[in-house]
C-alpha cells in the first residue's frame, strides 16, 4: 500500500521533468509536457519525496496516507 498520496498542480508544472528522472514509475510527462501521475506505490517513498522536493516550481504536493497531513511542500 502506498505511503504517500501525490497531487500534481498542473498549472505550476513547467515540464522540467526532474520528477520523471527521480521517480519514473510515479511520474511521466503528457503530450503537453506536463507531469501526470502513473502510480503511488511503485517507486520508493524516499524517491517520491525527493522527486517532489526537486521540482523547481513546487508543482508536486505529497500527503501522508495514514494521517492525511501534507508532507511537502512544508507550509
Amino acid at each position: 500500500m502506498a505511503k504517500y498520496k501525490v497531487k500534481i498542480l498542473r498549472d505550476k508544472c513547467i515540464g522540467a521533468a526532474s520528477c520523471v528522472g527521480i521517480a519514473p514509475e510515479t511520474f511521466k510527462l503528457d503530450d503537453e509536457n506536463i507531469a501526470i501521475l502513473l502510480s503511488e506505490d511503485k517507486d520508493t517513498a524516499e524517491n517520491i519525496i525527493l522527486a517532489a522536493q526537486s521540482c523547481p516550481t513546487n508543482a508536486i504536493e505529497i500527503y501522508d496516507v495514514a494521517t492525511n497531513e501534507k508532507v511537502w511542500p512544508k507550509e
Binding site: A16, S18, I49, Q53, S54, P56, W72, K74
Partner: peptide, 14 residues
C-alpha cells in the same frame, strides 16, 4: 542538464 541541490530541511534548488 541541471542539478538539484539539497539546501537543508528538504529544500532544494535547481
Amino acid at each position: 542538464q541541471y542539478i538539484s541541490i539539497d539546501m537543508g530541511e528538504g529544500y532544494r534548488r535547481s
